[in-house]
């Protein structure tokens, strides 16, 4: 019966069915139906753009690029869309083949070249986001355990780390004073373990903070550019 329906269904019915599936939120089945419609109407570029939109909404940029490559009329919209998809997919080298205007500044921003990017985008008035130094974070943690994490904006982590390292060190010292060497060695080992982990973790935490700041900044600019 289903086979019979599949044979009998006209292309316009397939399209209507695809629209219904899309409205219902059944994205992947809608894409399948749109592709089936394309099989009967290979010239329908608007349907290809519809599929690309659905793939983009799902974050499947690779699939969207594959569909875009089959678009027949390679006009300005095609170039804009391809550039956008490569940009979103993080393949910045490929974007240069499609974008030629000021939007290329976004790639500089993604690569951390804020001044050049803002200059290309014509937003000289904007000041680049203030970044923190991961090395400073690690050094702060080396001086006072947990301070690097507080510097990265994670106050809870910093306080907890300080308490952990202070308590393990105190136990190691008290065991050593009581001449209980095995206990002293165990707690000293734990203290070193947490201390080293804190320096490493502070470096990573500052990097994560920087990434977060950068993403927020670029998202704000993307809202104005796109």
């Amino acid at each position: 019966m289903i086979l019979l329906l599949a044979v009998v269904m006209q292309p316009k019915d397939i399209l209507r069915f695809a629209h219904t599936l899309e409205k219902e939120g059944d994205t992947y089945r809608a894409i399948t139906e749109y592709k089936r419609f394309l099989y009967y109407n290979p010239d329908a570029d608007s349907i290809r753009y519809r599929i690309v939109y659905l793939y983009t909404r799902e974050g499947l940029y690779g699939n969207a690029i594959d569909v875009m490559r089959t678009v027949i009329s390679k006009d300005s919209l095609y170039k804009e869309t391809m550039g956008f998809l490569f940009y979103r997919a993080g393949m910045y080298d490929s974007v240069y083949a499609y974008w030629k205007d000021k939007k290329l500044g976004l790639i500089d921003l993604q690569e951390g070249k804020f001044k050049e990017g803002l200059k290309k985008l014509g937003m000289k008035n904007l000041s680049p986001p203030s970044m923190k130094s991961p090395v400073t974070g690690a050094l702060l943690s080396a001086i006072v355990p947990g301070l690097g994490r507080i510097y990265a904006g994670r106050v809870g982590d910093g306080i907890y780390t300080l308490l952990t390292i202070a308590s393990t060190s105190y136990f190691a010292y008290s065991f050593y004073r009581e001449n209980k060497k095995p206990g002293a060695y165990i707690f000293a080992g734990l203290s070193i373990f947490f201390y080293a982990g804190d320096i490493f973790g502070s470096y990573i935490a500052v990097n994560m903070y920087n990434n977060m700041v950068k993403e927020k900044f670029i998202q704000g600019i993307e809202g104005e550019v796109f």
Partner: peptide, 13 residues
């Protein structure tokens, strides 16, 4: 080092 960092991030805060 990554394990130590992870343990330091698991706390009541």
């Amino acid at each position: 080092l990554m394990a130590a960092d992870r343990l330091e991030r698991c706390h009541p805060f």
